[in-house]
Design a protein around this nucleic acid. Structure first.
Lengths: 153, 153
DNA sequence: CCTTGACCTTCCAGTAACTGTAGGGTTTAG
DNA sequence: CTAAACCCTACAGTTACTGGAAGGTCAAGG
C-alpha cells in the first residue's frame, strides 16, 4: 500500500503521515524504488494515532499510547493513568475557558453596540477595576501553571 | 521606564514585550544608549494586551482591539462584533472539548486499571466499532473547519 | 517511443506565540 | 577596576503540521 492509499485508509494526508514518520511514530517498509509501503498493521496504527490526536493527545502522548498499544505485556493501569492525567488537564482547560467565556459575555452584554465610542469591553480590558458590573476582570492568580514564567533575572 | 520595569508593571516578561514590539503592537521610545523607554500610556497598552491575550484573543486580534482602544472615534459596535465572534468561537471550542472529554471519561471508566493487558481505552482507540458501551468513538463529521484539508491530489 | 499527468521522493520555509541562547554593550555597586 | 545585573540584536527551537520547490517514477495514450 503506498502513501496516498494509506492516507485514504487512515483518513490522514500523506503529508501528515510522512510527518508522523519523521517524528518516529510509524516506520513503513520501502519498495525497491524508494516508495513507502504500508501494511494493514501500520494502517491500524495510523488510525489509532488519528483518533488519539482527535481526543487531544499530543504527538508525544500518542507515541506513549502507541508503545502501550504495541506492547502485549502492557498493564491496563498504565494506560488508565496516562489518560486519567490527560482528562484532568482537559478539565482544567475547559474550566478556564468557561470562566473566560462568562466574563467576556458579561462584557459583551454591557457594551451598547452602537455608533458611540463608549464601550464597556474596552474599559474592562483597560481598567484594573470592575467596570459596569463586571467583577474580577482579573480572575486572580488561578494556579499559574508556569505559562507566565518570567525571564531569568 | 526601561523594559524590565515595564515588565514588572504590566506583568509580562521583557522577552514577551520585545516580541510584541517585533510584531508591531507597542513601539516604545529609545534612550540615547539604545535602551527602550516606556511611558505610562504604553504600560497601559501592555496591560490591555495581556488581558486580551488572557481572554483568548490572538495577537492579531489584540492588534485590532488595540487599534479600537486607541481610536477615540471608534464605534462600540465594532468592538462588540469582534468580541462576539470570539465568543462564538470559544463556545464551539468548549463544546468540542466537552464532547471529547465525556468520551474519554467513558473509556477510562471502562478500563480495569489493573496489571492485565486488556484495556478498553486502547481498544476504543484501535477499533472503529463501539467497544464496551462506548458509543460513537468517531463523533461523526462535526462541521470540519478546514483543519483536515487533504493534500492537493 | 515519447509525452503527459499523477504519483512518489527529499528538503526547506512558514505558521503562532513565544522561549532560550549566544555574543556583545552599559550601568551600577563595591 | 571588576563583577553583577542590566540592556541590545539575532538566530534557533518549540508544536503539529502545511505548502512548495526540485526532481524521480509509473501507467496510459497517441
Amino acid at each position: 500500500m503506498n502513501i496516498s492509499q494509506a492516507g485514504d485508509a487512515s483518513d490522514l494526508s500523506p503529508k501528515t503521515i510522512r510527518y508522523y514518520e519523521s517524528v518516529g511514530l510509524v516506520r513503513p517498509d520501502r519498495l525497491a524504488n524508494g516508495y513507502r509501503d504500508y501494511g494493514s498493521d501500520q494502517i491500524r496504527e495510523l488510525v489509532f494515532i488519528r483518533r488519539a490526536r482527535h481526543f487531544g493527545f499530543s504527538v508525544d502522548e500518542c507515541r506513549q499510547l502507541l508503545m502501550l498499544y504495541r506492547d502485549p505485556g502492557r498493564e491496563s493501569r498504565e494506560v488508565h493513568s496516562l489518560v486519567g492525567h490527560k482528562l484532568e488537564e482537559m478539565n482544567r482547560h475547559i474550566d478556564e475557558l468557561v470562566q473566560m467565556k462568562s466574563i467576556l459575555e458579561q462584557m459583551v452584554s454591557a457594551c451598547p453596540a452602537d455608533e458611540g465610542s463608549e464601550c464597556a469591553i474596552i474599559d474592562s480590558l483597560a481598567e484594573p477595576e470592575p467596570v459596569g458590573g463586571v467583577k474580577a476582570a482579573e480572575p486572580v492568580p488561578v494556579a499559574d501553571d508556569g505559562q507566565n514564567a518570567r525571564e531569568g533575572r
